[in-house]
Design a binder for these strands. Structure first.
Lengths: 123, 123
DNA sequence: CCGTATCCCTTAAGATACTG
DNA sequence: CAGTATCTTAAGGGATACGG
């Protein structure tokens, strides 16, 4: 879903809307953003805080969020190297806007959602 | 990302949060939900309204949203068959809550998002 | 410590032909 | 018209070993 050779029809033809929804189609993006909520984190701090993310996926996620302008990568020229990741203003607004709305919706309707899925008959 | 044999760490360990974010990891889900915004639609109406969704994917999406309890499938015993898809109260609340928040965020910050991605150097 | 490079598996998604 | 079946491609994700 990263590239769009097809488009998703006129309803979401707006490139901006696609770009934003893509921030959520990558399941780890919200996790990493949430992990940065309380201030900058070094890479391995993120890794341990999140717990089960792989090296590769963490790298991809950080790069994608950096490219999108939601986080910054502050690099210190040291040995051993050190990199601090932090939310940008854009990232913070995304966290406090859409993601907060999602979290709020879950606290209200999450039970219904889970309940419905329990009734699923495993084909 | 449909199943979760791994979990996403303690930050998002809450199953309800995962269930909700999964509604957005399937890129077509928001599109179909948005297409139902103005009332019930028959299957082929959705197909033409959306434009580029394939038969299979439309079926999968409708089934997933139905299972999640966000939409209903009203079946009429006719020949030729007729099925009306409509938002449930849960689906409407999802549309008016998280998705509206996302749309609102885009109108404010979408430009910054696109601008950042333009500066991406294609590896 | 911060990443990269591989290898492998799973799945979203597209295209098309076909059934009730 | 609604939906299934089948095949194919591309990409996400996991694990681990290696490099700067």
């Amino acid at each position: 879903m990263t590239d769009h050779p097809h488009g998703r029809g006129q309803l979401m033809a707006d490139c901006r809307l696609r770009a934003a929804t893509d921030l959520l189609t990558h399941g780890w993006d919200p996790v990493v953003l949430a992990a940065l909520r309380d201030g900058p984190q070094r890479r391995h701090q993120l890794r341990t805080a999140i717990g089960t993310i792989s090296e590769k996926v963490l790298t991809q996620t950080l790069r994608r969020l950096t490219d999108a302008g939601l986080i910054t990568a502050q690099r210190y020229a040291q040995a051993p190297p050190r990199v601090d990741y932090a939310l940008t203003a854009l990232g913070t607004s995304f966290l406090e806007g859409p993601m907060a709305a999602l979290a709020a919706w879950i606290t209200r309707h999450g039970d219904e959602l889970l309940q419905a899925q329990e009734h699923r008959i495993p084909h």
